[in-house]
């Protein structure tokens, strides 16, 4: 009985995202922005100092690959005019190339295509989405952030999203880690055991590209070579909001929004869904 009163006394702590923007989530500095046309000695020094080689020096200016970035902030210290942290967590993307900022020519078109294809595939997953997680060599922090989604603050159940014990009941596969040699077979088997249509989300920089740990004899260089990845969530580790955005993006409940805006029809759908779940 004391637990009941204590629980009730707390009031509602759950975020309203994606129905409304979340004040804390919007203020969390979850990604690095690269100014367009960034050149010069400072930028070159930043590229040389990047521990994962995420900064490419191109003729039109430097480009940052958020899929390799581990958010150490070294470039922001060396070249503060070209690189800086920015608030916001909606960094997931439907194409690996879309994580490279600023966007290159032709990127918009491939992303639109990817979105259409994915939307067609997941239209059967309207009312309930079941997730299965596989750790393919994470450092352990991604698991904390995924597990936080079932807690009272993020509470993904309100959106009709649940974790499934078996891959046979799962629609979405969340993969963490760079894809170690030891997990190749298990990851593949889990993916194959899932019924179609299915969606794969690479959670975290390690799963996207291998990050800092990738490239050894056993660590792997991202999981896209083992299972077909539909959504890429960068971050080392990504925040729970970032992972939530990736899940909602996968099932078409929000759009890709580098600026942080949620697209119109998806928002309505999210409201409808939240109404149904409660």
């Amino acid at each position: 009985m004391p637990w009941v009163t204590r629980g009730l006394r707390e009031g509602i702590v759950t975020t309203r995202y994606p129905r409304r923007s979340d004040g804390y989530g919007a203020s969390f500095e979850g990604h690095v922005v690269c100014a367009s046309g960034a050149t010069g000695d400072e930028v070159e020094a930043a590229a040389a100092a990047c521990p994962t080689g995420a900064i490419a020096l191109e003729a039109a200016g430097a480009r940052l690959d958020r899929g390799s970035c581990i958010l150490c902030g070294r470039c922001c210290d060396i070249a503060p005019r070209s690189f800086h942290f920015e608030p916001g967590f909606e960094t997931a993307a439907l194409r690996r190339r879309a994580l490279v900022v600023p966007a290159g020519e032709g990127d918009d078109k491939t992303i639109t295509e990817a979105r259409e294809q994915l939307r067609e595939r997941v239209k059967g997953l309207r009312r309930s989405v079941h997730l299965r997680h596989v750790d393919a060599g994470s450092d352990g922090s991604e698991e904390w952030e995924i597990a936080a989604l079932t807690g009272p603050i993020y509470d993904i159940h309100r959106l009709g999203v649940f974790f499934s014990a078996s891959p046979r009941h799962a629609d979405v596969l969340l993969v963490t880690g760079a894809g170690t040699a030891g997990m190749q077979a298990s990851l593949r088997l889990t993916y194959e055991a899932m019924p179609s249509p299915k969606v794969v989300i690479a959670v975290g920089t390690d799963a996207v590209s291998g990050g800092l740990v990738g490239g050894t004899y056993a660590s792997g260089q991202g999981v896209a070579g083992t299972v077909p990845v539909d959504v890429f969530v960068p971050g080392s580790p990504p925040s729970p909001f970032g992972i939530l955005h990736g899940i909602l993006l996968a099932v078409g409940l929000v759009g890709e929004a580098p600026g942080g805006a949620v697209s119109g029809p998806s928002r309505d759908q999210a409201e409808e869904r939240e109404g149904m779940a409660s």
Binding site: P51, I70, C72, D135, G137, S138, D139, G140, S141, E142, W144, G177, A178, T180, A181, G182, M183, S186, G211, L212, V213, G215, T216, Y217, A218, S219, S236, P237
Partner: peptide, 30 residues
């Protein structure tokens, strides 16, 4: 326990001292 073996000790070799700290943070992320 081998499923998660990432060869981290090999990854340290040749890194700068500052990069080594970033890798150490990812040895056991919690």
């Amino acid at each position: 326990v081998f499923y998660k073996h990432r060869g981290m000790e090999s990854r340290f070799c040749g890194l700068s001292l500052a990069d080594g700290a970033l890798l150490a943070e990812r040895y056991e992320g919690v």
